[in-house]
Design a protein around this nucleic acid. Structure first.
Lengths: 140, 140
DNA sequence: GCAAAATCGTTGTATAGTGCAACAAATTAC
DNA sequence: GTAATTTGTTGCACTATACAACGATTTTGC
C-alpha cells in the first residue's frame, strides 16, 4: 500500500487530468450541450428548480457567467425563469419539457459511455468508487 | 449498497462537478499558473520530457492549443524546447530550473489543500480512493 | 529510389467561457 | 427610514479552445 502522501499526489493528478479532458469528452458525448450548460441544466433539474446564485456557488462561477449561460439556455427553450414570489429579486430556474428531453438523451449517452469503461469493474468496486467520490465532493 | 446504475450516475455527477470547479480552485491555489499551464508543466516533468503531441493527446487538446501554451511557458522561462535529434520535426519539452521550482511550490500548495480535505479519512480509504482513480484514469 | 501519405508544430481566424466592475432593483438590518 | 446586503444584468477585457491551411520532416508503398 502506497503512503498517504503518494496517494494524495495520485488523487490530485488524476482528478486534474480528468478535469482537463472533461470539456472535450462532453462535447463528444452531446455536441449540442456544452459541459457547462449540461451541468447547469442537470443541477437545476436535480434540485427541482433553483436560483442562479445557487448555480454560481455550486460550480464556483461568477454570477455574470451563470447569467449569460442561463440566458443562452432560455433562448434555446431549455429552461424558463419564474420570478421568485417570496423574493422578487431572484428567479427560479426550471427545465422545460425540451430541456428535460435533452437532459435525458444526454444523460443516456453519458451513461452508455461511463458504463462502458466500468465493464471490467465489479459491482462492489463501482459502488465503493462512487462512495469515495460522493464523500470527497460533499466536503467542498 | 446502491445499484450499479445509481453508482455510475453518482460517479458521473461528482466527476463532472469536480471538473466544473477545477479551474477556479487552481487559480486560487497558484494564481501565477493556470490549470492548463500547471497540468502541462506537470506532465512534461513527470514524463521527464515529452513532445507537444504527447501533451495534446494526453489532455485531448488540439495541437494548436498546446503550441500556444508551450510558447507562453517558454516565454516565462518555465520550459525549454530541444529539437528531437531522432526526428527533426518534433521537439522535446523539458521544464527549466525555474519551472521545476514553480512546480514544486504549486505542488506544495495543492498538497496542503488536498491534505486538508482528507483529514478525517483513514489512510486506507485515501489509498483505495487513489487506487480507484488511477484505475479509472488508466482506461482513458 | 521516389512519389504519396502521414506526422509535427505554427499561425490566422473565430468563438466560447470566464471574471471584474458598475449598475438597478429588491430585501434585510439596525 | 436609511444603510447595507443580495440578486441578477451588462460592458469590457482576456484566456482557452478548435479548425483550417501551411511548411518542414519522416514514413510508406510500390
Amino acid at each position: 500500500m502506497p503512503g498517504r502522501e503518494t496517494s494524495i499526489d495520485i488523487i490530485q493528478r488524476e482528478l486534474t487530468a480528468f478535469a482537463r479532458r472533461a470539456r472535450h469528452k462532453a462535447s463528444q458525448l452531446h455536441p449540442d450541450l456544452s459541459l457547462v450548460t449540461y451541468s447547469i441544466l442537470d443541477l437545476i433539474n436535480e434540485r427541482g428548480g433553483c436560483r442562479a446564485a445557487d448555480v454560481a456557488s455550486y460550480f464556483m462561477l461568477d454570477k455574470s457567467t451563470v447569467s449569460r449561460q442561463v440566458t443562452a439556455l432560455e433562448k434555446l427553450d431549455l429552461l424558463r425563469r419564474e420570478t421568485d414570489p417570496d423574493d422578487q429579486r431572484g428567479q427560479i430556474l426550471r427545465a422545460t419539457e425540451a430541456g428535460l428531453t435533452l437532459l435525458r438523451m444526454a444523460g443516456e449517452q453519458r451513461r452508455i459511455a461511463f458504463t462502458a469503461r466500468f465493464t471490467d469493474w465489479s459491482d462492489d468496486d463501482v459502488a465503493r468508487f462512487a462512495g469515495y467520490l460522493a464523500r470527497y465532493g460533499s466536503e467542498d
